[in-house]
Amino acid sequence: MTFSMTLGPRLQLVASLVPLNASLGDIGTDHAYLPIALVEAQRIAKAVAVDVHEGPFKSALNAVKIRQLEPVIDVRLGDGLKPLAAGEVNVLTLAGMGGKTMLEIFAARPKVLQAVTDLIVQPQGGERTLRLSLLNSGWRLKTEQLVKEDERIYTVMAFSRDEGQTMAELSCQKDVWLQRLSPQKPEDNKFLGHSMIVDKLVWYFGPLILEEAADLLREYLDDYSEMLRRQLEQMKLSNKSETLEKIRDVSEELVFVEGIKKWQYP
C-alpha cells in the first residue's frame, strides 16, 4: 500500500489495517499524518483527528488546512473519545500510548465505543493487559503483527466485533504452548507454576504472533531473554530470601522463553 505522505513503519502498518471506507477516529493524532495519508489514498470516507495537547492539535489543523482536507478531516482538541459523539465514527486508531491509557480512554466513553466495529491499536507497554481486556470484553482479534522502527520492536493489533478469533479460541493456543513446553502433567506440583508462566508469555507476546514465527519474533524473544538475564544479574547481588524466590521465578521464565525460541527456530 502506497501513501502520498511518508509514514514510518509503525503508522504504515496501522494504516494498512484500517478497513476500507471507514469513518475513522484517530486518537492522539499528533500531526494528523495517519488520517491525511488514508484520505489521500482514498482508503477512508472521513476522519476525526483528536489530540489532547494544543501543540499537536494546531500542527494537525495546519497540516489538514494546507492540503485543503477540512471537508473530510475534522481536527478536534480534547481528551480521548470525549470530543466524539456516539455513532460518529466506526473505526478507531490509537498509536504510541500505553495500553492502560488506551483502556482508560475506552472506559471514559462507553457509548462511543459501543458504535465502533474495529479497533487498531499500537500500545507502547501494557500489551498483555490491553489484549486480555479487549478479548474478555467480547472483541475478536483479527491480526497482530510486529514492526520495527528506530531499533525498537512494536506490536500492532486489529480487533473487530465480528471478525477474528475469540478469547476462547485463542486460549486454546495457550494450552498448545503449555503442552509443547512443559513435560509436567496436570497432577504434578510444578504444572500450575508452569501454566502461569506460559499464560504470561502467550498473552505478552501474542498468540497469533507466536504462531506466525516471523523473523522479528526471534529478535523480540532475544530482547526479552536479555532483559530477564539483566534482572537475574541484579537480583543475585542480594541475599534476601524474597529475592532468592524471585530469582527462581525469573530463571524458570527464562527457560520457557528459550523453549519458545527452540520450538519456533530449531
Score class of each variant (00 low, 15 high):
149 E>F: 14
87 G>N: 02
103 L>S: 04
45 A>I: 06
77 L>K: 06
39 V>I: 11
100 K>E: 14
78 G>Q: 03
176 V>M: 12
149 E>K: 10
165 Q>A: 13
111 K>R: 12
165 Q>E: 14
75 V>I: 04
63 A>S: 15
166 T>D: 01
127 E>C: 08
66 I>K: 14
67 R>E: 01
165 Q>W: 14
115 A>W: 05
77 L>D: 06
146 L>F: 09
165 Q>R: 12
167 M>F: 15
66 I>C: 08
111 K>Y: 05
163 E>K: 12
91 V>G: 00
51 D>Q: 00
131 R>Y: 07
81 L>Q: 02
85 A>C: 03
80 G>Y: 07
165 Q>L: 15
151 E>S: 15
42 Q>S: 15
65 K>G: 08
46 K>Q: 13
154 Y>W: 06
127 E>F: 10
54 E>Q: 13
119 L>E: 06
93 T>K: 08
38 L>M: 02
122 Q>C: 05
154 Y>P: 08
97 M>E: 07
139 W>D: 09
159 F>C: 08
56 P>A: 03
116 V>E: 06
167 M>L: 15
54 E>N: 12
106 F>C: 07
126 G>H: 04
153 I>G: 06
47 A>H: 02
74 D>S: 10
88 E>K: 02
74 D>I: 03
144 E>T: 09
61 L>D: 02
148 K>E: 15
75 V>G: 01
161 R>H: 03
85 A>W: 06
144 E>D: 09
171 S>T: 12
65 K>T: 10
133 S>V: 10
169 E>W: 11
139 W>M: 11
90 N>L: 10
142 K>V: 15
107 A>H: 04
122 Q>W: 03
108 A>H: 07
168 A>K: 11
90 N>M: 09
97 M>F: 05
64 V>E: 06
118 D>P: 02
173 Q>F: 15
156 V>Y: 08
67 R>Y: 04
83 P>A: 00
57 F>N: 04
44 I>G: 01
